[in-house]
Simulated scan of single mutants.
Amino acid sequence: MFGPEIPAVTPTEVPEGAYLLDVREPDEWAAGHAPDAHHLPMMEIPSRLAEVPTDGEVVVVCRSGGRSAQVVGYLMNNGWDNVRNLAGGMRAWAAAERPMLSEDGNPARVI
């Protein structure tokens, strides 16, 4: 039995003002992330659910879209109806030449 289909958006479809939730590991985040993203590693989601907005558009992102799709499914199963997966993840974000910042002093990149 499969759960609900995971809603997704492409990097160019991310709405202005969307809450970007980056669920990658700290080293991935430090290497490169969207400027307005919020970092919340996937394994911390269950204990930090209160940090995920329940209103407005929430777009969940990882490296390629797999982990973020799992997080979107988890959130949907816990009552969120405003979450979308970033199709292709940060790889697609970078390929679409969307802005990125790094935290480690190197040029922003996806690892």
Rank of each mutant, 00 (worst) to 15 (best):
P4M: 11
A8S: 13
V14G: 12
E16A: 15
G17S: 03
L21R: 10
D22V: 02
D22F: 02
V23A: 10
R24S: 02
R24T: 00
E25A: 10
P26H: 05
W29C: 01
G32T: 08
H33T: 00
P35M: 07
D36T: 14
A37R: 02
H39A: 09
M43C: 02
P46S: 01
R48C: 09
L49P: 04
L49Q: 12
E51D: 14
V52G: 07
V52T: 10
P53L: 09
P53R: 04
T54W: 07
D55T: 12
G56I: 04
V60E: 07
S64Y: 02
G66F: 01
Q70Y: 10
V71T: 15
G73T: 01
L75I: 12
L75C: 14
L75Q: 06
N77P: 05
N78Q: 14
G79M: 08
W80A: 13
D81G: 08
N85G: 14
L86G: 10
A87N: 12
G88C: 09
G88A: 13
R91L: 13
A92L: 12
A96G: 11
R98T: 04
R98Q: 12
P99W: 00
P99C: 13
D104M: 15
A108K: 05
V110F: 02
V110N: 01
V110S: 05
